[in-house]
Design a protein around this nucleic acid. Structure first.
Length: 368
DNA sequence: CGTCCACGTCTAC
DNA sequence: TAGACCTGGACGG
């Protein structure tokens, strides 16, 4: 599930799982995939991965063979090939035995073992894609996580671009400048800084330095108490740093959490799940498991393992696209599990029914 | 059963 | 700036 952090965790997963593994033969594509063939085949090759923003690159490296005859065999690669992936809404990598191939595996790399194992690109919805002999997409900007300085510079030096005429919540999704930011991250970042989503991007960004002056400062935390909300005092923890810095640090935070989504610190609140007894909790846990890139032991009860890390619950500060684009309510601090689903784009289609989904969240009615 | 929703691009009007 | 592209989970009747 793919914003920048997940893509990067995907690359870590590949490197970890495929370290020392020798692959062989052709790269195979599913029947149904519309992405291009990957014309690579090799008796023995290795796979490594790297990421940049919302892309992952797999490098297929043929192993040296002193048998020159083998080399001359038809269709044998002797050069490395890069395959660049975008994950769409549902892409991820898995390394499994052949008979455990996940449903919706669309590109498969086979290990030279018996029984063999398979690195596969899994993508339920098929919005993802890849390019053989690929390069990082030229229109995408520097990685928010791993090319921080050039990312900053790229934004700061292009503020006259018409792209920045738009509201900040939209601009944060522009991969030309914010390669790696997605819907959840933009919401989280704007929320942490308390920036109204529809202020013009340029007005938020102008005045920021292309060098991050905070770079060496400790990210001290300040507490802002809002007395206005009478019934519940909302406490906002805010890290030091400007918007561009948070576009860097928040995704890294997610990476460091092992991709277990966005978490909160401190008191989880009285309704925090305590075990996996409830069917709901089980489902949730399973779902999370499906998409985390950390090592899982088969059969190990995921939830019962007590991590020394602070255990947390998904915060889902997220504000659905339509939501954020309609009104300014991301201010509601603690969203629940499911994002409060808002009405349709053109309300005309909407019956009079309340737009809230059952996890009924604060979403105040749009002032529209 | 049906409707709505989902961490993202793409390209056609 | 809407759709289009997809599958499947959650929920409602």
């Amino acid at each position: 599930m793919p914003e920048g952090p997940e893509l990067h965790l995907g690359s870590l997963y590949v490197n970890k799982m495929c370290a020392g593994v020798v692959f062989t033969g052709p790269v195979r594509k599913s029947e149904v995939s519309k992405s291009p063939d990957v014309p690579f085949t090799c008796e023995a090759y290795r796979i490594t991965a790297s990421s940049r923003g919302k892309e992952v690159k797999l490098r297929l490296t043929p192993m040296k063979s002193d048998d020159s005859k083998q080399r001359s065999k038809a269709g044998q690669a002797d050069q490395t090939m890069d395959v660049v992936f975008r994950f769409g809404m549902s892409g991820y990598f898995r390394f499994t035995s052949e008979d455990e191939l996940p449903k919706h595996s669309h590109l498969c790399f086979y290990s030279k073992e018996t029984p063999c194992r398979v690195l596969s690109f899994v993508d339920t919805r098929r919005f993802g894609s890849w390019q053989a002999n690929g390069t990082w997409q030229p229109d995408r900007g520097p990685c928010i996580m791993f090319e921080y300085e050039s990312f900053r510079k790229n934004v700061v030096t292009h503020l006259s671009d018409r792209a920045f005429d738009r509201p900040i919540c939209e601009v944060l999704l522009n991969q030309k400048y914010f390669n790696g930011i997605g819907n959840y991250l933009r919401a989280e970042i704007l929320f942490r800084l308390n920036i109204p989503p529809f202020v013009p991007a340029r007005s938020v960004l102008e005045g920021l330095e292309s060098e991050d002056l905070c770079e060496n400062e400790k990210p001290l935390k300040t507490e802002i108490k809002d007395e206005k909300t009478s019934d519940r005092v909302k406490t906002v923890k805010e890290e030091t740093g400007d918007l561009l810095r948070l576009c860097h640090t928040v995704p890294l935070e997610v990476v460091n959490q092992g991709g277990k989504e966005l978490w909160f610190n401190g008191d989880p609140g009285p309704m925090a799940p305590k075990d996996l007894k409830s069917p709901k909790a089980k489902k949730r846990a399973k779902k999370t498991e499906d998409h985390d890139y950390t090592d899982k032991k088969k059969g190990a009860k995921g939830g019962s393992k007590s991590t020394p890390k602070k255990k947390v619950v998904k915060q889902e500060t997220k504000t659905a696209k339509k939501e954020i684009e309609k009104s300014e309510e991301m201010v509601s601090p603690q969203k629940k599990k499911r994002p409060a689903a808002r009405g349709r784009k053109t309300s005309s289609a909407e019956p009079a029914a309340g737009p809230e989904k059952r996890s009924g969240r604060v979403t105040r009615q749009s002032s529209k």
